[in-house]
Design a protein around this nucleic acid. Sequence first.
DNA 1: GTCAATATTCTCGTATACAAGAAATGAAAT
DNA 2: ATTTCATTTCTTGTATACGAGAATATTGAC
Lengths: 234, 234
Amino acid sequence: MRTKRNTSAEHAAAEAPVRRADALRFALEADIVTGVFKPGDRLDEQTLADRFGVSRTPLREALSQLAATGLVTLLPRRGAFVASLGFRDIIERFEAMAALEAMAGGLAARRIDGPGRRALQAALDDCRAEASDGDSDTYYLANERFHHVIYAEAHNAFLGDEARRLHMRLKPYRRLQLRAGARVATSLAEHERIVEAIFTGDTPGAERELRAHILVQGDRLSDFIATLDRSDLG
Amino acid sequence: MRTKRNTSAEHAAAEAPVRRADALRFALEADIVTGVFKPGDRLDEQTLADRFGVSRTPLREALSQLAATGLVTLLPRRGAFVASLGFRDIIERFEAMAALEAMAGGLAARRIDGPGRRALQAALDDCRAEASDGDSDTYYLANERFHHVIYAEAHNAFLGDEARRLHMRLKPYRRLQLRAGARVATSLAEHERIVEAIFTGDTPGAERELRAHILVQGDRLSDFIATLDRSDLG
DNA sequence: GTCAATATTCTCGTATACAAGAAATGAAAT
DNA sequence: ATTTCATTTCTTGTATACGAGAATATTGAC
């Protein structure tokens, strides 16, 4: 049993994992969103406990929390599985996310300040740079930062957290449509319009643009999924 | 109510809490939202375990899940507390809820069908009846059912679940402004306009009305809180 | 060979035991 | 009397043990 030093890292975004269960939760979260565990995979308690070098107790707590978050499904007496979203589930989440993003954008249009303007402009510039690079993977990261800036400028921490949670929840499914061809260009154009609306204080415009920006992603993804065998998606 | 579409559909009707932890979670949830445990209260594991006649293990799991939901705060090595929302936290949640409700209303305006129309009309009639009765407590229940019908007619289970979750989360704080005088009358008038918009397929109208309907509640509550000593709220 | 019923095994769910950190208590010094 | 430090106690966090139900394998009949 090693003594863990709580050096209290400078980033207080989330609580420092002083409990094993928290560390396990983060680790599992990461493994799920990065695709190490794919939707539908069974998560055996003992196996995972051995892998992380802990007993089943903290691991079960981590799974319990992930189940409450919806990232894993807990079948009583049958085990834990990486929650797999069906076609409809994905659409539903994109609709909810569109609502949150639109609200965040509208709030940002009213509440953004000087530093926020600079941050948003910088994030947009990053998106431009990555878009011209043509690497859809790094553009995805720039896109993520762009949206995070909007959450921050909405000055509503809860809204941002919920949006981020949804974003993470949908991440494993986004990887399905990574190479979307012209999507990067159109996405960037949408970002431009969003920033324009926010900078001019156009609240309804920011809401409208952001909502469409999110919903079109859901549409693209559902188009993509519709071309696949649906049996393995729920 | 919990909608799990993507789990084994064989017993999808009403999942009986087969695990003690689940039953405990529901019980604690109820005790928190009904005010048996008030925000800031300490939740001692052994005491609660004794009260429910179980060991600490399932109780800890329940607390863990509630912490993931945000209903309790878990201080490492210090215990579990009923999460208390500060002034700002409440406003933030009302803003997020307004976004979700507006989206639900807009979707309902486009998706409501015959049975849905009847259900919504019935819910509105109930609100009218309770409003004329003058009992703000029973009106609150009718109001709740009214909104649940809208969630249902949005045909987006996830959106409905999230809205319900937020609603439950804010419940203990709503009790602060229970008797709001003319609020019942204005609320009913807003309901009438919401139904009108949904029935006529006026999507933007439904969104606008519902958003305002929720935000004004946050405003009323914050007005009320501002008249209190803030030290015990945040 | 296929199907069904039974037995076995395996994993989950809960209880209990133990270790570690925090709060509480008390004593000593200023 | 107040503060500080040490000790005690108490609660949390983790590990282990055990019972129960589900999945699987085995056996038997057809």
